[in-house]
Simulated scan of single mutants.
Amino acid sequence: MAPEVLPKPQMRGLLAKRLRFHMFGAFMVYLGVAALYKFGVGEPRKKAYQMKKAGIFQSLK
């Protein structure tokens, strides 16, 4: 009976493969943070500026 042969490890292209995976993950995290900032900070600020411009706030002149 012959000894079991282990498969050779992947050496060529390993960095490129891992970078593709991590770049995809980083891009997904970026999109999530950008959406949270837009709807959590940007939109409320825009709404407040519009309300100020419309004259709703009497104390702000």
Rank of each mutant, 00 (worst) to 15 (best):
M1L: 10
A2E: 00
A2L: 13
A2F: 09
P3L: 05
P3C: 02
P3K: 05
E4T: 14
E4I: 14
V5R: 14
V5I: 09
V5M: 02
L6M: 10
P7H: 01
P7Y: 01
P7M: 04
K8T: 04
K8E: 10
K8D: 06
Q10N: 12
Q10Y: 09
M11S: 04
M11R: 11
M11D: 04
M11F: 10
M11K: 09
R12G: 03
R12H: 14
R12S: 10
R12W: 09
G13R: 08
G13N: 15
G13M: 09
G13T: 02
G13I: 06
L14D: 08
L14N: 09
A16K: 15
A16V: 05
K17I: 11
K17A: 15
K17L: 11
R18E: 15
R18M: 13
R18I: 04
R18Y: 08
R18T: 11
L19C: 02
L19W: 00
L19I: 03
R20S: 14
R20Q: 15
F21G: 08
F21K: 14
M23L: 14
M23D: 08
F24P: 07
F27T: 15
F27M: 15
F27R: 11
F27G: 14
F27Q: 14
M28W: 08
M28K: 15
M28Y: 06
M28R: 15
V29L: 10
V29H: 04
V29K: 01
Y30A: 13
Y30K: 11
Y30L: 13
Y30S: 13
L31N: 15
L31V: 12
G32E: 07
G32C: 05
G32M: 08
V33C: 09
V33Y: 05
A34L: 12
A34E: 11
A34K: 12
A34H: 10
A34P: 05
A34S: 11
A35I: 08
A35S: 08
A35G: 06
A35C: 01
A35Q: 07
A35W: 07
A35M: 07
L36T: 13
K38P: 04
F39N: 05
F39K: 01
F39I: 00
G40I: 04
G40A: 02
V41T: 11
V41Y: 01
G42A: 00
G42V: 05
G42H: 03
E43Y: 13
P44E: 03
P44I: 02
P44R: 02
R45S: 07
R45N: 14
K46V: 06
K46M: 01
K47M: 09
K47P: 03
K47L: 10
K47A: 12
K47T: 06
Y49H: 00
Y49F: 04
Q50D: 07
M51E: 04
M51K: 00
K53V: 00
K53F: 06
K53L: 00
A54M: 03
A54Q: 04
A54S: 03
I56M: 02
I56S: 01
I56R: 02
F57M: 02
Q58C: 03
Q58P: 06
S59N: 07
S59R: 03
S59P: 06
L60D: 01
L60H: 05
K61M: 01
K61E: 06
K61R: 04
